[in-house]
C-alpha cells in the first residue's frame, strides 16, 4: 500500500536529519500556519522552499507513493474550481494542500520516532496538568503503529475484494466487513505490544534529554525564520 511506504522514516542520509527535531517541529508549525494566511507571492516563495526541502531530503521509492496525493490534489482543484469558477483560486487551493502534505512527509521521512518523542516531551513539559512522559510515549507508539495499521487495512480490503464485499448492498455490512477484522487485528497487536514491553520491563522512565542547542542549531532556526518572515513580507 502506497501510504504505508510514505509514513515511514527514511534510511538514507540527508541534510535535514542533522537538524534538531525541536527546530524542525517549530518551523513546520510556523510554515503550516503561514501557508493558509500568506499572499500569492508568499505562497510561491514557500512552495519553492518546500519543494527544495522535499527533493533534497526525501527519496520517493515508488511512483505510487505520491500518486494518492496527486490524484487528491486534482480532485481538490476541481472542487475548488466548481465552487468558485476561479482557476487561480483552485490553483492556490491545490498548492496549499500539496505543500502541507510535502512538509509533513519531510518531517516524518527525516525524523526518527524517538526524536519526535523527545521533542514532544520537551514541548509539552512546561504545560501544567499534562503528563509529558505519557503524551511523548503515546506519540512515538502511534507513529510506529500507523504504517502497520495501514498495511493491515490494505490486506483486509484486498481479502474483502476477493470475497466480493464490493457487491454487498447494505452499507453497514460493507463497513463491518472491513472494520471488525481490523479491530480484532488491533486488539491482538495491543496485546502483543504490551506483552513485549512488559517482558522488557518497560516502565516509561527513560532518558528524554535532547542535546543542548548549538550555534549550528540557531543558524538553522534563524534561516528557517528568515524564510517565514520573507514569505509574510513579499
Amino acid at each position: 500500500m502506497a501510504e504505508a511506504v510514505f509514513f515511514r522514516y527514511q534510511d538514507q542520509s540527508s541534510f535535514l536529519k542533522k537538524v534538531d527535531p525541536r527546530i524542525k517541529i517549530l518551523l513546520l508549525l510556523i510554515y503550516t500556519i503561514i501557508l493558509y494566511h500568506t499572499s500569492t507571492r508568499g505562497l510561491i516563495l514557500l512552495s519553492v522552499f518546500t519543494i527544495f526541502l522535499f527533493t533534497a531530503n526525501y527519496r520517493i521509492k515508488s511512483p505510487g507513493e505520491i500518486k494518492g496525493a496527486l490524484l487528491l490534489s486534482l480532485f481538490i482543484g476541481a472542487a475548488a474550481y466548481l465552487s468558485s469558477s476561479d482557476l487561480f483560486f483552485s490553483i492556490l487551493a491545490v498548492s496549499r494542500f500539496l505543500m502541507a502534505v510535502l512538509l509533513g512527509l519531510v518531517l516524518i521521512g527525516t525524523t526518527h520516532s524517538v526524536e519526535i518523542e523527545k521533542a514532544v516531551y520537551w514541548f509539552v513539559k512546561p504545560v501544567p496538568l499534562i503528563s509529558e512522559t505519557e503524551i511523548a510515549m503515546r506519540v512515538r507508539l502511534t507513529i510506529t503503529f500507523i504504517p502497520d495499521i495501514m498495511e493491515t487495512a490494505a490486506q483486509i480490503k484486498e481479502a474483502g475484494l476477493s470475497r466480493c464485499v464490493q457487491n454487498v448492498k447494505n452499507p453497514v455490512r460493507k463497513l463491518k466487513a472491513l472494520i471488525v477484522p481490523l479491530l480484532y487485528a488491533i486488539i491482538r497487536k495491543a496485546e502483543e505490544t504490551a506483552l513485549t514491553m512488559e517482558a522488557r520491563c518497560y516502565s516509561g522512565e527513560r532518558d528524554y534529554a535532547l542535546e543542548r542547542f548549538t550555534l549550528t542549531d540557531l543558524l538553522h532556526l534563524s534561516t528557517g525564520l528568515a524564510v517565514a518572515a520573507g514569505t509574510l513580507l513579499v
Binding site: E3, F7, I25, L28, L29, Y31, T32, I33, I34, L35, Y36, H37, G68, A69, L72, I76, F97, A100, V101, L103, G104, L105, L107, I108, I116, A119, V120, F123, V139, T142, I143, I146
Partner: peptide, 17 residues
Amino acid sequence: LGAIGLPVFHNGTGGMG
C-alpha cells in the same frame, strides 16, 4: 500529532494551519 505537522489529518494534511 497533527498540530506538530505529521500528515494525520484529512487528505494527508497536518499542522496548526
